[in-house]
Structures are given as C-alpha cells and as structure tokens.
Design a binder for these strands. Sequence first.
DNA 1: ATATTATCTGAAAAATTTTCTGAAACATAC
DNA 2: GTATGTTTCAGAAAATTTTTCAGATAATAT
Lengths: 151, 151
Amino acid sequence: MLDKKDKALLQLLQQNAKQTNKQLALQLNLSVTAVYERIKKLEREGVITKYVALLDKEKVNKGFTVFCHIKLVQHAQDYLTKFEEEVTSLDEVLECFHVSGDYDYLLKVVVKDIKQFRSFMVNKLTTIKHIGSTQSSFSISEVKNTTQLSV
Amino acid sequence: MLDKKDKALLQLLQQNAKQTNKQLALQLNLSVTAVYERIKKLEREGVITKYVALLDKEKVNKGFTVFCHIKLVQHAQDYLTKFEEEVTSLDEVLECFHVSGDYDYLLKVVVKDIKQFRSFMVNKLTTIKHIGSTQSSFSISEVKNTTQLSV
DNA sequence: ATATTATCTGAAAAATTTTCTGAAACATAC
DNA sequence: GTATGTTTCAGAAAATTTTTCAGATAATAT
C-alpha cells in the first residue's frame, strides 16, 4: 500500500509542504510527474488530510500552555457528548482526548498568560456542565512539539 | 503589528495552506500581490514558522496515542537536559512538555497499538536514565486535535 | 506642506502545476 | 511464450500560479 517512495515523500511533506515537485523529485529520484501523481494519490486516499501553516505561539500571543485533566461527575452518554461538544467549540482548547486513568479527559489549552488562563477557567471551562474536578499543570518549557508522524 | 487582514490571512493559512493567492485575495478583499507580500512578511518575521502536510494517524499505523507522565529521580540541571535530549530523539514522542505539578514531564506518544507501546516503554522510554516513575493514560478517543491558534 | 514609509494595484515575467501522450515494468491469464 | 490489463513512469505542452516590477495611494512624521 505505501511503498518506500511514498513514505519518503510523506516525510518530506511533513517537514516542509512548500517544496516544489521538482525539489521533491530530485530528492526522491523521480520525475516531476511521478511525484505529482503520488501526492494526488495520497491525498485521494486520505493519507494526507490537509496542509497547514504553523505559527509561532509567542508571536501570536499564545505563549502559555496548560494541560487540564478533567473528571466528569457522571459518565452517562449524553453527559459525555455534551461536554465534548462544548469543549470542541472553545478555541483556546487545541486538543481534547478522552483518556483512561484517574481523569476522563486531557485538554491542551493555549492562551496568552496566566491571567488569560484564569479568565478561561472561570468564564469558559468551568461553566461547562457536568464537570466534576479539574487539575491543571502549566507548561514550564516546550521540549518537543512536532506534527511529524514517523512513517 | 498584526492588523485585521494579517489575522484573517493567518486563520486561512492555518486551515488550508494550499490555497492560491488568488483565492486568498478574494476572501480578504485584496489584490494577489498584496496577499503575496503579506505572507512573505509574516514568514520573514517568523510568525509563520513552517508549512506542513498533516496525515491520517490510522492510515500510517499510528492510531494509538498515549500520554506519559514522568517523574525524574532528581532535578539536577544535567539530569533534565540529558532526559530532554534523549526523549527528543525518539520519534514516537510527538510532544514533550516540562510541566508543573506532581510529575515533571508530559509526553504524547504515538504508536500503532498497545503491543508497540509496550515495546516502546520497555526498549526506549524506560531505558532513559534518571526516570523515577511514569504513569500512562491511553487515548480512548480523540475529541479535538487542531494546530490552529486563534489569532 | 513635504518627505518618508508602508501598502496597495495591475501587468509582465518566471516558475510551477496540471494535463496529455505514450513508453516501460509488472502481474495474470490463456 | 504471448497476449492482456494495470500501474507507474518520463517528457512535452498547456494552464495556472508565483514572483517581480513600476507606479499609485494612504498614512506618519518632521
């Protein structure tokens, strides 16, 4: 399904999606058209889902990252869905995973500073129904943060 | 520093970096050249750090996400740096944050399945020196996962 | 008011993407 | 072994996009 060239191509596109097909062709020992067709195929099959620009957090005033562990009061189906809907609509929340363990959800929240985080907690997060308890840990430093899956 | 048009442009590029300047120009009520120059400026200033292709985790056999909370045995400077270096080199680790709270680090680990996770733990993670304890929670479902910062 | 700077538009040039044609490589069936 | 179909490839041509350029407009400061 994915051969060596596809995998190499995916690595390159995950690192820099702005490379021209010519540059890619050169690195992969293929013609421009071959690269073009492989990319189209990977897009068609849904292996590549989208192309995005990544921004510098600090430069757009989102330099403060917080991880929120959340427990719901109950685990009825509609409690979960309602919570998930509301949390998804918050654009300070970049990630939300339903997880195993002591807590039900793990959220990655990105704001400007601790002041904005407080405001986020008070005015947005804790106004969501059914939240039992939350435990937040602040990011002291970002050691690694990549979108690159090793294929 | 960033005006309304810049912010709108950044939103669009974070959603889809493959749009042509013509398409962007239309949405922003600008000329193609104006869009072109704004993008170049945002790149030059480092607001836009890179362009990447995002992949479907399942389709590349990375459908299993685990969050690992890690405590070090000590917090000497060189313990931290050594740990951070080693963790950064592991390509199953997409993210690593030094965090406040009970644990020192929070890792996002992505592998194929629980079997591969076990192998990652045994052969890679726990072979790193100075690790005190770890606590892992598995992702049951991915509720939200975006790279888009709201500017 | 004038110079300065930044940002804009529209046209032309350069480069890239996309389409098209046909060849090579490969597997399968007869 | 040969025919057949499929996939992948390369190279040329067409279509589109990016990039450069010249000059206009708007905003700011002296």
